[in-house]
């Protein structure tokens, strides 16, 4: 069955690799004070520094050579060292991979 991608839409969108999404609600016409802006900045720095999940995971599918990795055998470090593509794609602080592991989409 043909897909109609035009209809697909996030209702509640997760942050992408390397992204942090914050939903902040303010009253009409409200402007952040310098103090509040500083607090938001501090929050972001804290998230980047301490939340292990902010470093996130990355799709092996973005690697053009991912098909050379076998299903479930694409070790992230090996893959990174071999093709290099994933190095740039690792998200956030990006020095480690979390428990979600990597994904091999298996697409040709």
């Amino acid at each position: 069955m043909a897909e109609n991608q035009g209809e697909r839409q996030w209702i509640v969108e997760p942050p992408g690799p390397g992204e942090v999404s914050l939903h902040m609600a303010f009253g009409q016409g409200v402007q952040l004070t310098e103090e509040q802006e500083a607090a938001v900045g501090e929050l972001l720095r804290t998230l980047e520094a301490v939340d292990a999940e902010v470093t996130g995971h990355e799709l092996a599918g973005k690697c053009p050579k991912q098909s050379t990795c076998g299903t479930l055998t694409c070790k992230p470090v090996d893959c990174t060292l071999k093709c290099g593509t994933l190095t740039a794609a690792v998200s956030g602080g990006g020095t480690s991979w979390n428990l979600m592991g990597t994904f091999n989409l298996g697409l040709q």
Binding site: M1, A2, E3, Q5, R8, W10, P14, G16, P17, L59, G61, K62, T71, L72, N98, L99, M100, G101, T102, F103, N104, L105, L107
Partner: peptide, 27 residues
């Protein structure tokens, strides 16, 4: 399957698809 890469990527980003070895309870 007719499943696009964009759909799969989105589903993985939303953690709706996980790799076979992922232990979600452990996470």
């Amino acid at each position: 399957s007719g499943c696009s890469a964009a759909l799969l990527e989105g589903l993985a980003r939303g953690r709706m698809l996980v790799s076979d070895e992922t232990d979600e309870v452990q996470l």
